[in-house]
Structure formats: C-alpha cells, structure tokens
Nucleic acid binder design. Structure first.
Length: 585
DNA sequence: GCCGTTTTCGGCCCGACTGTTTTCAGTCG
C-alpha cells in the first residue's frame, strides 16, 4: 500500500473558502449556500484531527456544518488532488478575483464590478488600474476606497500580511490601558475588554472594548484625545474605531448601563458562538442582539450582566474561554460545563529564574515578589550548565544556591521556597544534572533548549527519556514554539501524554506570551489523556510573574479545573507527587 | 449547503457605519 499525502485541514478550508468567494463574486447564488461553504471552512480550519482522514472514513459528516456534499468534495480532493466543482468555477470566475474581494472596503460586489468594467482579474491588474486612474471610474468606488486600496496594495508590496494576527501578549497590555482611558470618563459605569482577548485567544486581530456609559460624547472625546490613539477611523453613537500608535486597531462600543451584559456578550463572541446562541433564541421565539433579548411581541429585555443574557436563553453562564462553538452550548444545557481554573487558584510557581542564571532579579527579590502576589510556594528553577549562554548552574553552584534557599526559609519569608531547577534535556536524551544531584531537588522541570532540528522520533524519544527519569516531575515548554520566531518542534504528543500519565509527570503550560506552550488544544489533549498540567511563568524578573494570566488563559481554553493543575494544589500535595515519583527509583 | 424539541423541506443571526448615493447597498464585525 502506498502512502499518499493527504490535504491538510488548512488546504481543505482554503478550497472551500475559495468556492465561497467565487460564488459570492459570481452572484445569483443563495447566500446561505455560500455561508454553508464558509462555515464548513471555518469548522475544518479549527479542527484538531485530520478532516481528510475523517472524510475518507465517511465520518466527516459527524462534524457540525459538514454534510455529505462537503464530505464528498473532501474525498475527491484526497483522491484526485482537486475539486471538479472548484475547477469549473474557476473557468467561469478568475480565481484572482477572490484576492481582490478580500481587500478591505472591496468585497465581492466591487470585485465583480472591477472585473466587468475593467477586465481586471487579479491584484497585479488592480495595481495597474489604480496607477493609471481607471479604478476610480468603477461604480461604487470613490476616493476613500481608492485610498484604502492604495494603502493595502502598498502594504502587500512590502510583504505585509494583511490578516496578521497579533499575539495576545502584545495586545493585552495596550487593551488594559485603553480600558483605563474610558474608565476615567465621567458617566462610564463599566468598561471591559471583550473579543478574542477576553476569550483567551493566543492571537487577535484587534482589540474590542465594551463600555457602559450615560455620556457617549464624553467617551468619544476621551478616546480621540488619548495619547495612545493615532487616528480615529470611525465614530458614531454606538462606537468608535481607532488606530493606535502601537499599530493595533481598537474598537470601542457604547451602551447604556442597563444593557451592558448584552453588549459584552455580543462583543466577546466568538462569532460562531453568537450565531448558535441567536439560532437558539429564534427557536424559542426570541431575538438576541447587543441591545437586548426581544420576544415575539417586540418586548425587549435588557441585561446588565452576561449571566442574565444566558439565563434568558435557559443556560448557565458560559465562561468566555469556552465560547468557540465547540459544543459548549450543549455542555451548558446538560450541566456539564467544567469549573475552570482562575488566577486566584494558583498557589505556587515552580518555574522562575534568578540572577543565579539568566534572570534579571535576585533570588530574594523573586521570592518577595511571589509572596506579594499571595503565592504559598515558589520553586527557584535556574538553568543547568549546558545552557552556558544563560550561565546555567553546575553541581557546585546548585549546592551553594540551596544554602541560600535554606537561609531564606530559615528567616521565615512568608512563603515556602523550593529547590527546583530547569534541567536541560541534552541532544542524546540524557539530563544535564546527574541523578544524585537531581534527587536533592524539591521539584524538577526538564526542558529542551537545543537540537530542535532533530526528527520527530528523536525529539519525542528525548522527552520520553526525561519523563522516564524518576526525578523529573514536569516537562517545560513541551513544543518549544516561539511566536514570530519558530514553529514548535515536531513531537508525538500522544506518546508523550501516554507516558506522562503513566509516570505522573506533569506537562507545562509555559505562560510566557511568546510561548504559550502547551497551547490550548494540546493542553486539552493532555487532560483527556489523564495528565496533570502545571502553569509555569518562566519569569526572568519580578514583573514577569504577571504573565501567569496567559498560562491561565490556555488552561481555561483547555477546560482545565484547578485540581488538574499542579501548582493549584497545596504544597503538601506537590511534595507528595514528588515523593511518589522518586520512590520509583 | 446544512439541518431538525417546527425533523427530509423550508427555513437559515443581528445590527452599525460608511461611502457613494440621492435613499441605500455594501462591507464589516
């Protein structure tokens, strides 16, 4: 049997999106048929398992939004490498028009107008028509649209990605500042971050902020004059959109306080979640919008908080991180929603660095900062000697650090300081500290910092070897991914989860915003496999302890309850986990 | 094209803003 290359979920989704775009440009189609292709594409793109494999087993129709027609097309793509329907469509509508339609301010109707009026069929032709002034002659395209197209084509020419996603770690601090700007305004009773940031997404495309106010004009003024805002893109009674100096778009939406719950719910999304909720409302003879819930005779009920919105739909409140239309509404209805871990549940942090290795702050300062956050224990986990660039510790320096920790604990610092480490997993799978030294720690995290170019089998074997060491309690940043720098190295997560579950080894959710590793999907798979998670800040300074919020976001999106997170457990239980492990020796 | 507490046909989520218009279609979220 020959092994064939199956199309990825992204490739399948791209094909369906292209069909939708071209049908839209062609016009005359049922918009619901187009929507069905788009929904199918979105579903497939967000699916964790291989949809091609599912389709070949005639099981893709088990997914929501995927019917027999889409499944047949996926099978066809697997078998022949193309979809006949798409090929025929491309013969009628030039595929390059889809790229034009995806430009901001253009869309399918104007793309069609550009084609029928000028004969332009792709972005290159659009650039030509823009340069010689023909574009401005097309019906429905005025000076503002010309400006928008000019800017976008210039950005594309620079190699920019128009759909660039911004890591949450870059957007969140700005969003928090923007919320404060409007909270200072008289008449504002509440303001909250909404959108993908509130749902704990790894990346977002903009910042959404819901504002409850009795004085819209005052809020508009405060936004327009904020030092953070570069340009007001649009402004109305219901909201303002701005470009910030940080280069991130922010959208504010205003509401009277009595319907703040409706607005916050609406603006938090996800879009797919909201669509499901509205469909549910319609079935109950109601209509849901950001203004309220109206019943069949037009009576509108406004909700000051989200709980009331969900209650009107017969549901318990669903945590924002779960609102992705992945079965959370059914789970809510059945009373099966998990109680998600919160920042307040964190009792300790077992992954922090100090000036002993590559940290910026001293051990005593890190201890003090952790105590001030209300933590019960902190594990000082500096690097091992192989990471010379980070001034990793050898056995001699480890023992001297232990002396310092003993002295601090003896002085009653108001928090228990644990002897921990982040030991390197070397290229051959050996650990960078020998077992005698590892036995003396209170907690050991093993991480890969080198040899990322090895094959998946080799990388996985190194991690499995580390897991098998009875002195290892956790695997740090298991995939090594870094936003904007590198993809995670390839690992066989199922094999790692299985071994980690068997040995009681925790897998880390590294909370550094550039890492967020494990991500939510992988963390969910780890939980399903019976593994404990641990949220490590990997803080290299006292202020970095605050990044725990990003780790919590991943854990919540994974559906994690606090009892499944090692550092939400009382110290005695953490110590018991360590003792059980070393007893295997 | 998908789907079903209205179940194999006939529905399918809601609203705001903008630009290009002469009262609204297109686009966006």
């Amino acid at each position: 049997m020959t092994e064939r290359e199956l199309p990825s979920n992204a490739q399948i989704a791209d094909a369906f999106d292209l069909i939708a775009d071209l049908l839209d440009i062609e016009g005359g189609q049922s918009r619901h048929r187009i929507l069905a292709y788009r929904r199918g594409a979105t579903r497939i793109r967000g699916e964790r398992q291989s949809v091609a494999t599912l389709a070949l087993a005639q099981r893709a129709t088990e997914l929501p939004d995927i019917g027999s027609t889409l499944q047949d097309k996926i099978v066809e793509l697997c078998d022949t490498g193309q979809m006949a329907a798409l090929v025929r469509l491309c013969e009628r509508i030039p595929a390059g028009l889809a790229s034009i339609a995806r430009l901001q301010e253009i869309g399918p109707k104007r793309a069609r107008a550009v084609w029928s009026t000028l004969g332009v069929v792709d972005l290159e032709g659009l650039g030509g028509a823009l340069a010689d002034g023909r574009l401005a002659t097309v019906d429905g395209i005025g000076p503002k649209t010309i400006t928008a197209v000019t800017e976008q084509l210039a950005a594309l020419a620079r190699g920019a990605d128009l759909n660039e996603r911004i890591p949450a770690g870059r957007a969140y601090p700005l969003a928090a500042e923007l919320v404060e700007v409007v909270r200072q305004v008289a008449g504002v009773t509440r303001a909250e971050i909404a959108g993908g940031l509130r749902r704990g997404s790894e990346t977002v495309h903009d910042i959404d902020i819901a504002v409850a106010t009795t004085d819209v004009a005052a809020v508009q003024r405060a936004i327009a004059t904020s030092r953070l805002v570069a340009e007001v893109l649009s402004s109305g009674e219901r909201g303002s959109a701005v470009a910030t100096h940080a280069g991130i778009r922010a959208e504010f939406r205003f509401t009277p306080p009595e319907s703040f719950g409706n607005l916050l719910q609406h603006l938090t999304g996800s879009k797919a979640h909201n669509v499901r909720l509205r469909e549910r409302a319609v079935r109950a003879g109601r209509s849901l919008s950001e203004h309220g819930v109206s019943d069949s005779d037009g009576q509108v009920t406004r909700c000051a908080d989200e709980r009331a919105v969900y209650a009107l739909l017969g549901l318990p409140e669903i945590d924002p991180e779960l609102r992705e239309d992945t079965g959370e509404i059914a789970a809510a209805e059945a009373g099966l929603l998990p109680t998600l871990v919160t920042v307040e549940d964190l009792r300790g942090d077992l992954h922090v660095h100090t000036t002993w290795s590559d940290g910026h702050d001293s051990l005593v300062d890190m201890v003090g900062a952790a105590r001030d956050l209300g933590l019960e224990y902190i594990g000082i986990s500096d690097h091992s000697k192989a990471l010379a660039m980070a001034r990793g510790l050898d056995a001699d320096r480890v023992r001297r650090q232990w002396d310092e920790i003993d002295a601090i604990n003896a002085a009653n610092p108001g928090i228990t300081v644990l002897k921990a480490c982040e030991v390197d997993v070397l290229a051959d799978g050996a650990l960078d500290h020998d077992d005698d030294l590892l036995a003396g720690f209170d907690w050991v995290t093993a991480s890969l910092h080198s040899g990322f170019r090895q094959a998946q089998r080799q990388l996985t074997d190194r991690i499995l070897a580390a897991i098998d060491n009875p002195f290892v309690n956790a695997i740090g940043h298991p995939t090594g991914r870094m936003f904007g720098k590198r993809e995670g190295y390839p690992i066989d997560l199922e094999a790692i989860v299985e071994r980690a579950a068997a040995t009681g080894t925790a897998l880390e959710i590294n909370a550094q915003p550039k890492r967020m590793d494990l991500n939510a999907d992988m963390a969910r798979r780890a939980l399903a496999g019976g593994v404990r998670l641990i949220i490590g800040t990997d803080a290299h300074s006292t202020t970095e302890l605050a990044v725990r919020r990003y780790g919590i976001a991943m854990a919540r999106r994974a559906g994690a309850a606090p009892e499944r997170i090692v550092n939400c457990l009382p110290l005695a239980q953490v110590q018991a986990i360590r003792q059980e492990s070393t007893a295997r020796r």
